[in-house]
């Protein structure tokens, strides 16, 4: 048996530390006669929104990317990554586990594929070159966000969403083109965003960007039950679980690197001011989510999905989207 696998961003730790070893070493060692060819969607020049569409058409066997990239074709998928609700990895994992049956159905129906795993990117936190002390201070500021729901949230908060390419964010922060920008704490550290920003808010304004690994459904069905079993067990225990297990520590390390509070294994620590969310912030965020952002999503996705979300993810985190 052979598998053609398309990984997520080749430059990011999830690919280098987990995807690559898993698909090229761990899995071939665990399954007999399994050959794996691995490339990544950025190396193929694929549009980020195309990864699952082409997976469903059988252009390759296995694809993985940020679920949020695919919401153009499946608005109901936005429910997997609601920002701000999960402030730690454990809660994020609970949310993902609760959402898994929904995600499985979405991938089955929309993308003709079978979900194997859902792993986290580091939470998307806020870098500001502006004096802020709470979420409310973002009002009136220019913020670089990624993802539709985050942008909608910022709009509701009274901030202005600005579109800037990742590589141009340092310049944009320095010149005041944007006041704040959202990205993973680790990416922000390695890209030197701390040189041009002063305040770090660890509220996951951009969510956890879950990366979904899925296999073309026809391919999946053509595999022997033993091989299916091996692949599923291996990917859960050797890829998904370890990726989640290190997520919380990784965040703590990255925050230490950015603020200088604690040990920084990655290099010299920076000295950004840490802004922690107050209970009022969390309250306010939930209020905006429940009253504006999530009902809007409900309109995009349809009442059936709102119901499913309330019964699963909503149940876990104690949020109920009012029926519109």
């Amino acid at each position: 048996e052979s598998l053609n696998v398309v990984g997520s961003w080749s430059s990011l730790p999830l690919h280098q530390q987990y995807e690559q070893p898993f698909w090229t070493e761990t899995l071939p060692a665990a399954a007999d006669d399994l050959e794996v060819a691995l490339t990544t969607h950025d190396q193929m020049g694929l549009g980020t929104g195309d990864v699952y569409t082409l997976l469903g058409q059988g252009v390759y066997d296995v694809g993985m990317t940020v679920a949020d990239y695919a919401v153009a074709d499946a608005p109901e998928l936005e429910g997997l990554d609601v920002p701000l609700i999960a402030t730690d990895a454990a809660t994020a994992k609970q949310m993902v586990d609760a959402a898994r049956p929904m995600v499985t159905d979405i991938y089955h129906d929309r993308f003709n594929s079978h979900v194997l795993a859902i792993a986290p990117y580091p939470p998307q936190v806020v870098f500001c070159n502006h004096d802020i002390s709470s979420l409310a201070d973002l009002e009136g500021l220019k913020v670089r966000a990624s993802g539709r729901m985050t942008a909608k949230f910022l709009e509701a908060l009274g901030a202005e969403g600005i579109n800037v390419a990742f590589s141009e964010v340092p310049g944009a922060l320095q010149k005041g083109v944007v006041d704040c920008a959202v990205t993973g704490a680790g990416s922000g550290y390695s890209a030197g965003w701390w040189e041009v920003s002063t305040h770090l808010m660890t509220l996951p304004l951009g969510g956890w960007d879950p990366v979904v690994t899925a296999m073309n459904l026809d391919k999946w069905n053509s595999l022997s039950p033993e091989l299916q079993e091996t692949i599923q067990t291996q990917i859960t225990t050797e890829f998904e679980d370890p990726a989640w297990a290190t997520a919380q520590d990784a965040l703590a390390n990255d925050v230490a690197c950015l603020t200088g509070n604690g040990d920084c294994p990655a290099g010299d620590p920076a000295s950004m001011t840490l802004v922690e969310a107050t209970p009022e912030d969390t309250e306010r965020a939930k209020e905006i989510l429940v009253n504006e952002v999530l009902p809007e999503w409900g309109e995009r996705a349809g009442a059936e999905w709102v119901q499913r979300w309330n019964d699963s993810v909503g149940e876990v985190v104690g949020v109920t989207i009012p029926a519109s």
Binding site: G49, T53, V71, A72, D73, A74, G147, R148, A151, G161
Partner: peptide, 22 residues
């Protein structure tokens, strides 16, 4: 054509605040 057909079938909208119908 399949790109357009896919967008029609899924009523796809851009993953942006504009939500442009693709």
């Amino acid at each position: 054509w399949p790109v357009v057909a896919n967008s029609i079938q899924n009523s796809s909208t851009a993953n942006t605040p504009l939500e442009t119908p693709l």
